[in-house]
Design a protein around this nucleic acid. Structure first.
Lengths: 135, 135, 135, 135
DNA sequence: GTGGTCTAGACCACC
DNA sequence: GTGGTCTAGACCACG
């Protein structure tokens, strides 16, 4: 599990951690019952304060993605994969909504927007098809 | 010129005002030389603090979209339409970047994202082609 | 609105604050649209760190009891009274469940438990009937 | 003696073990002089760390419920049944206090609380009268 | 060792 | 002025 934070992003660090765990569970990189890195380990790895990681873990526990095993650490909860796949979709859909709202009120056409998305997609180096993603 | 603010949105109020002026100029609803509402009038109309409107106007002046006519108010500047059309595109591109970043890190494929965009576009009731926009 | 914290209780301070706000809204002491004390004011009043109050407020926002009015403070949200009445009941019911579970596994009879409750009730100086509560 | 731990409960594991021993002695399931399972056996049976069981036994020794028989294990102490019956009552009384405090500060009436208790009691399938308990 | 809570003090964006 | 985020460092209960 490799995490990377963007300290220049307006998205709070703890939220970025939450997202990465959610994505890791959604993609299967983190399976049910797996333990996440300890608060202290992850905080050193990401070079953030331990409180920041703890806050992320607490949020994930509240969302029933992780569950605390007292004295042992945090484990991926039973229903987590489904929850995370849902959340991943919801997250991206939210961004799409924001973008579409702005594009519509700005008077752009669908064609222009789709072209923009494809252009940015290439710049970001994303995969092209679902098959490629799973490869 | 009709403005509508969403106080629940994470987008700052002054930024929402900026966007609306920019879009109004880009679309031609506001022409070069037109006067914007006074800070007082607009703040009463939108039920926000006058400082918030002032900040938006200040921002727009900095971007050379508006220019202060002393004792009279703010007027749409000469090069404004071009600037605003550019900015409109930049704004949307920024949202697209955010969305693509999230989609890529979430492991979605380009196909899935494009489908999402089209779905949201229909939901938002936007135009389909550039021709349709100009019509 | 009078708040009082018990620093000897095992219940976290931020959770105690959450409960008190919930109860205040449930009882109508805090109505929809009312502003809560600012983080800094309340932290001074309760002699706790501002972060502790902020954490409570954030929790309440997540539960849609409060909503942030940016730059102004936190206001009681529209659906809050219903949510709070529900939560109040749920909270007490949870305690009752804990207590009953322990009593049953300890082999006490219902009569003994009811007597215990009445005794503690008098010691705590609570009201006797619903009518008395509203008086 | 059958033990069952709930690892999801907020009650610490060692405390759950303590309670179960106390209740077993109070009810007579464990008589004076009986030996409890060894730390190792019980920790394997409950799938918990041996330290956790040791801590529970230590606590029980401190409360003079068990006494160490060197080289043999822990035995139920002479005065244990009386102590345990007392403690059982104290335990439940503590829960009642918690519950009453919350109910009073939540503005509930005694009637409402008693009704809640009876409802939960039935749900938990407890006995109705002291006579029934002894039967 | 684990996570959870709290304090103190800093900086930020927003109104 | 408002809340939101982050850091640093402390203490605690639990296993």
């Amino acid at each position: 599990m490799r995490f990377a934070l963007d300290t220049t992003s307006p998205v709070p660090l703890y939220e970025q951690i939450v997202h990465q765990v959610v994505f890791a569970v959604a993609s299967g990189d983190l399976g049910v019952g797996d333990m996440t890195p300890s608060v202290r380990d992850l905080s050193q790895q990401l070079i953030v304060n331990a409180n920041t990681v703890a806050r992320a873990y607490q949020e994930l526990e509240r969302e029933q993605v992780l569950e605390a095993r007292r004295g042992l650490g945090m484990a991926v909860a039973a229903g987590a994969p489904e929850i995370c796949r849902d959340r991943r979709k919801t997250l991206v859909r939210g961004r799409v909504e924001d973008m579409v709202r702005e594009a519509v009120s700005g008077g752009l056409s669908l064609d222009e927007v789709l072209a923009l998305v494809e252009a940015e997609w290439r710049k970001a180096g994303g995969a092209n098809s679902a098959a490629e993603v799973r490869a």
